[in-house]
């Protein structure tokens, strides 16, 4: 076995002339993939209130409430949501879908419970 001292030296020197591998995030936004499991979106018109999403949610993060006849409202607890998108699969009527929204951090706890 040939032992060479400083095998990585050439690589190290060439790195001096390369662009940084990191990106300056808040100023330069990353392109998010189309199938990203971000915050779920709720399409009111399609919801029939079957509650399958509520039943299957592993984190008890989503709730559907009846506001009027055949009219429903979804409440999402962002602090509980684990972004598995099981609710999207469970919904047979296409009332829930994934979005690319992922910048959901906030300093105010009350903002983590959202009406969709």
């Amino acid at each position: 076995m040939s032992k060479k001292l400083g095998k990585m030296l050439a690589e190290t020197i060439s790195s001096l002339f390369k662009k940084p591998a990191t990106s300056s995030y808040p100023f330069k936004k990353r392109e998010i993939h189309k199938h990203y499991n971000g915050k779920v979106a709720y399409i009111k018109e399609k919801c029939v209130g079957c509650n399958m999403c509520v039943r299957n949610c592993p984190a008890k993060a989503i709730f559907i409430t009846k506001i009027a006849d055949k009219q429903f409202e979804a409440t999402l607890h962002l602090d509980r949501c684990i972004f598995c998108s099981q609710c999207v699969i469970s919904c047979k009527f296409g009332a829930l879908k994934n979005t690319n929204e992922f910048e959901l951090a906030t300093g105010d706890k009350s903002k983590l419970v959202v009406k969709l």
Binding site: H35, Y36, N37, F83, C84
Partner: peptide, 15 residues
């Protein structure tokens, strides 16, 4: 992995 599954970790690709 993010492209294929939608998450970087905890891929949730299995049902």
């Amino acid at each position: 992995l993010a492209l294929l599954t939608g998450n970087r970790v905890n891929y949730a690709v299995n049902v």
